[in-house]
Every structure is written in structure tokens, then in C-alpha cells.
Amino acid sequence: RDIKVGHFGAPGKAFDQGVQVFIDKLDELSNGEMTATDYPGGQLGNESQEIASLRGGLQEVFITSSTNMIRFSPKFQLIDLPFLFDNDAEADKVLLGPIGDDILGGLDGTGLHGLTFWDNGFRDLSNSQHPITQLSDFEGLDFRVIGEPIFVDTFKALGANPVPLPFPEIYSALETGTVDGQDNPLLTVRDVNFFEVQDYLTDSKHAYSAMVVLVGQPFWNQLSDAQKAIVQQAAEEAGQAQRQIMRKAVSGAKAFLAGKGGMEVDSFDAAARKAIRKAVQPVIDGVINDDNRDLYQQIQQTLSDMRQPS
């Protein structure tokens, strides 16, 4: 039967191109036995509906933000910790290794099965008031955030006023000044035209936005081991290609936003970054508990191994 692949990327844009690679890989690896169709832009419904469809066996594959998996497994919270990863290589190392597998395993028994992580880039800051280059610049700014406690707490810790809003309301809220700023990957800032209503961009990399490739348990159970291996391999290989596509698009978007997009692009210097990290440390401490401390330490270990090569 046809595999329905749902996601929220806009048709034809970078994320959707990655999905196309996945579909082609499925076809190629299965010698044409597995066919899949791409349903971009939430054509199969909103987040909760596509999840329900996966668990109920109406839909086969759904690619969504790892943040949305927190309610199924708290392990996913660790990925969203502020300033966890410094660059793409660090994120890939952790998420594509045993630690990533451990996190995905948290979905067992929920009716969902996680295949692998894909990339959605780092979240950066934009606002309409003034450049943000240090901690004190956050003071008094109204920031739209995702309605997850960790994002709300992070922006509170930075001194800003977090305002959780649903995604479709961001543009008009920015435009009308209901909020001053938002944080999203650069591609979103370009593709959803936030640059029209925002003047200042900060290359803050304050959180990494991971995507998770999900299959529904009813569908997964129907597959033979050989078929499972094909789907798994296709997701992983497409993930590699998808990372290249996304990262190339991100640098294109950055050039566009600074040029034609008319945004002033700033970044944190080492001292500012240190002060900001310190300010959000209580948020991290609040998330770490006995259940995830072990996993968190493994992540830190992996990262410090990378940062100080012996």
C-alpha cells in the first residue's frame, strides 16, 4: 500500500526536498515495492491529528518537531535545553548515535515508533526593537515562544516576557506589535516573511530544533523485518541528504536576510554568550532530574570529548 508521509514543511521548500529524497530512497531500496506520497504543509491535519492518524493506522509516516514528542517521553526535553549544542556537528554526533537511539526508544509503547532524527536548524532570535548582543538587551521585550514550559522558562530567565502564541498568529502579532520578537530557525524567518516585520536578527543558536521521523505502530507491525530495515535505511540515508539540503538553505537564507531582507544581523561575543548561558542555567537545572540525569551526563560527556580532542 501507499505510504503517506505527512509534515509541515512548505511544498517545494528545503524541508520538503528532504522528504522527496526519503520517498525516492524508499522506492529505490525496495526496488519499487514501496511507494510513498508526500503530504506537505499539514495537508493531513494538524499535529494532534497526524499523531492520532499514525497511532490509529490511518497514516504511515509523520515528520515533526522533537519538541512535540515531550508529552510522550520526557527524554525529548533534553534536546530542547538552551545552548546544548554549539554547532551542527555536535547535534549530529549526539542525535545520530546511541544517545539519540535511547531518546527515540522512549516512544516504545506509545503507538509511535521513532526511526531517526532529521535537521531543522538552530533557532535564532529576531525582534523589531533593537539589536540583541548581550543579556541586558532582552529586558522588557515581548517574545513569542512555543507553549512548552522549557521555552517559557528560558525566555523568563533571559529577562524577556514570553508570550506563547500558536504559529499561524506570529506574523500578525509581530506586525501589529503585540509581540516584539520571536525565535525560529532562519529558514522560517525567510519563508514565512518574518523579515518584513522584524529588523534585527541575532545569530544566537540558543536552541537546536530537531525533527523526528515517526511511523505508526500499526503500520510498523505489518512490515516484515526486511521491509522494516528498508524503511529504516531510507530514513537514515535521506536524513544525511536532508541535512546537506537544509544547511545549504540556511546559509542562503542568512545571506538573503542580511541583504535583500534588510535585517541587521548580530551575534553574541564570547563574554555575552557566557553570561547568557549562566542566566539560563537554572532552567537546565530545573529540567534535570533523577530520571534523565544519566542521559544528560552522557550527552555532556560526548560533547566534551568532541570539544577537547585528545
Partner: peptide, 18 residues
């Protein structure tokens, strides 16, 4: 054919903040 298609879309179709 699946009864869930009916139920789910009716329930989620209106579960939208806007």
C-alpha cells in the same frame, strides 16, 4: 474504508485555536 477517518476528522477538524 475506516471509521476512524470519520471520527478523527470531525474531532480534530475543529480543534484549532484560530
Amino acid at each position: 474504508f475506516n471509521a476512524q477517518i470519520v471520527a478523527q476528522n470531525m474531532i480534530h477538524g475543529t480543534d484549532n485555536f484560530i
